[in-house]
Design a protein around this nucleic acid. Structure first.
Lengths: 186, 186
DNA sequence: TCTTGTTTGTACCGATCGGTACAGAACCTC
DNA sequence: GAGGTTCTGTACCGATCGGTACAAACAAGA
């Protein structure tokens, strides 16, 4: 029989970081190999589809993380206000207070309509819809909730762009604070 | 003496479009040559610094366009409300109602701290400051104007990310409409 | 027309790209 | 141990990368 060391699962976060820093094109197999400590043999054994499969695995892992930690509470938490505040703090933590870039957003901007489009679209669609649902449960009219949810998701992405462009991570925290005022007014 | 055909200036918009579509890494000289109709000889004659100089020229051209069409009116127009509305309509036109991506934002996300960082930072800094100034001239308290300006610039970037990710250009128009309500309330 | 400088296409460079082939190491089950 | 499977390091592949060299084509002034 076989041995199943988690080499694939272990490698994914490291690969994600390489994609985050260099983009899809810029992330060479040499770089990925160095960062994961895996040779080409191992890499292609774990990801037979090569670089594209690595990117898919990374996107899936990110989607899973957000689903479990952010979207599910937004949909299910009996206290929608608490779920929204949790979203804001988890978002702050995930993006290292603006010091980390959103790989999904970066892929959205630079990658052509490869096989990634559905995963990229799903990530943002799920986020927007889960947040809108929480806002509705918090008593907002549906139309307002949907606008607000769209504004929030978009602001987070824009905040990451600006924080990086201006080399000013604190900008991200300022943006989250203003977002909290709009989403869960006291 | 020499002949000075505008081959450099003529090429810049085409090069910009290639960078926009493929990113810096993805934009190969072969692609740029095909799109501009220029051979390597002409390309390297016009841009002795190669790809990096092309990117700098493109960023400078974009910066110049925004300065002339958007930032200057925000600073100088005697009617700040009109300047802000002009900013929104020019922005909508420039980004083709969400169908075009912001090259500066894309570079900010993917490019390491190359020689582009100052141009990228300057683009967003100038925008934020010019808009804040217009808001102050429109009667807003300074602190509120600065927050609002930051939110606006960031929302535009986020709107472009989301419009592209969801393949929904109309999202960009919705975002601009909401932005107008916040920036120039009736 | 001759001269002088600029603008181009083409061929070429070494490096690196993503990906494949494959033999041997490591491992698990009898 | 033996046998079978999974891993992994290394060598290699053709293609393409950004960039250079250079000579023919061109334009402009004399």
């Amino acid at each position: 029989m076989a041995k199943k060391p988690g080499s694939r699962e272990d490698a994914i976060p490291a690969i994600a970081e390489v994609f985050r820093e260099y983009g899809y094109e810029g992330a060479s197999l040499a770089l990925i190999g160095a960062r994961t400590g895996l040779g080409k043999g191992s890499l292609y054994h774990a990801f037979p589809g090569g670089k594209a499969e690595m990117a898919e695995a990374v996107l899936d892992a990110i989607g899973g993380w957000f689903e479990a930690r952010i979207y599910a509470p937004l949909r299910d938490d009996p206290d929608p206000g608490a779920a929204i505040r949790l979203m804001l703090s988890e978002t702050d933590a995930y993006f290292r207070s603006g010091r980390r870039v959103c790989l999904v957003g970066a892929f959205a901007l630079t990658e052509g309509r490869d096989g990634f489009a559905d995963r990229i679209g799903g990530y943002f669609r799920d986020w927007r819809e889960a947040l809108a649902q929480a806002l509705i449960r918090a008593g907002r009219p549906a139309a307002e909730a949907e606008s607000l949810a769209e504004d929030a998701v978009l602001a987070i992405q824009g905040g990451l762009v600006l924080a990086r462009a201006l080399d000013d991570p604190a900008l991200f925290g300022r943006m989250l604070a203003r977002l909290e005022e709009r989403l869960v007014p006291v």
